[in-house]
């Protein structure tokens, strides 16, 4: 595991310059003085606009509600807890910009959650969601939505899901999508789309209209071909990410992928040869690849027990 860690860090690249060190140094020297002067409870009050209770065995919101100053709180981080539901009065946190509920056991969300007026980052990943409430797409300011590792499919989505015009990043990895609705074209500001390890058989041609996209993760699906329109997206180059591996690609695409990865595949699907091939391809002409076995997903456990 440690080997992996070093590998990843090497791949990560540049950091800020040396001036960053100076700043960090200052912050460190100030912190202890604060701690000595203020008892723990008061300190918490002082920082009450940001509440962070990570890995505290919290199973209901009522356990922390006394700490929440509804009108002033800006960030609520409750990752790695045991929450099973989000109360409707979450909508009272009118200044909340970040809500992080990563790794809980949430099965259902209140429709009121999408009325949070300032919410910009919503992390609901690693939960047990199999349905999203009606009107979920009406967030007025949401920029980053993480639904990684749930049990969501195209059938779980409310009609307005793809109308969050402010959305910059949508994380849907480790879910159960078999197709992506063409409505995705309405996410005009989308820069990041993660569909890793779903059950996708095709991608909609409307994906080609997301001109600001610079990250596309479609590895680990059941894709055999790509719509030619998707080739218009600029996904090759520095600061761009294109992940295509682990799909049952048609031999032509797989050959390009083996030769030169995403760049070669993109060159190929932009070619006249591929455009001709794609125009003749019958959707049902290739056998449907099997779904991956997801029985071991922990997001399944609740459902199996239920």
């Amino acid at each position: 595991m440690l080997d992996e860690q070093t590998d990843l860090v090497v791949g990560v690249g540049e950091f800020g310059n040396t001036e960053t060190d100076v700043r960090c140094g200052k912050a460190k020297s100030i912190a202890p003085i604060f701690k000595e002067k203020m008892p723990k409870t008061e300190k918490r009050k002082e920082e009450s606009t940001e509440i962070e209770h990570v890995d505290r065995n919290i199973s209901t919101f009522s356990q922390i509600s006394h700490l929440i100053d509804a009108e002033n709180i800006t960030r609520l981080t409750l990752s790695h807890n045991k929450l099973t539901a989000v109360p409707p009065n979450i909508a009272d946190l009118i200044n909340l910009h970040t809500l992080n509920l990563w790794n809980n056991s949430i099965e259902e969300l209140p429709p009121s959650i999408s009325s949070l007026p300032k919410l910009r980052i919503l992390n609901l990943g690693m939960n047990r969601l199999s349905i999203l409430p009606r009107g979920f797409g009406s967030f007025p300011a949401l920029e980053v939505l993480d639904l990684t590792y749930n049990n969501i499919s195209e059938r779980s989505l409310p009609g307005n899901f793809f109308f969050i015009q402010t959305l910059r990043a949508l994380y849907l990895g480790d879910n159960d999508f078999e197709m992506l609705p063409g409505d995705v074209e309405n996410l005009i500001n989308l820069q990041i789309l993660v569909l890793r390890e779903n059950d996708l058989l095709t991608l909609p041609k409307e994906l080609g209209k997301l001109s600001r996209l610079n990250e596309l993760h479609i590895q680990g699906n059941r894709l055999t071909m790509l719509p030619t329109e998707i080739g218009y997206l600029e996904l090759i180059g520095q600061k761009k990410t294109l992940r295509l591996e682990h799909n049952p690609w048609i031999p032509d695409i797989q050959e390009q992928f083996d030769l030169g990865g995403g760049a070669a595949v993109w060159g190929y699907i932009r070619s006249e040869k591929y455009k001709y091939l794609a125009s003749r391809q019958e959707p049902s002409s290739t056998p449907v690849p099997p779904k991956r076995n997801k029985d071991k997903k922990i997001s399944r456990k609740g459902i199996q027990q239920a």
């Binding site: 990560v12 690249g13 540049e14 950091f15 800020g16 310059n17 001036e19 960053t20 700043r23 962070e52 990570v54 890995d55 960030r75 981080t77 990752s79 790695h80 970040t98 992080n100 990563w102 790794n103 992390n123 990943g125 690693m126 993480d146 610079n214 990250e215 520095q238 600061k239 761009k240 990410t241």
Partner: peptide, 23 residues
């Protein structure tokens, strides 16, 4: 001013944190 650049993204120094627990 100072920024973190990694994973094809940029962060303010104060904003760079774990995506899953905000550490």
């Amino acid at each position: 001013g100072e920024v973190f650049q990694a994973l094809g993204k940029t962060w303010c120094v104060k904003c760079f944190s774990c995506s899953f627990c905000d550490k």
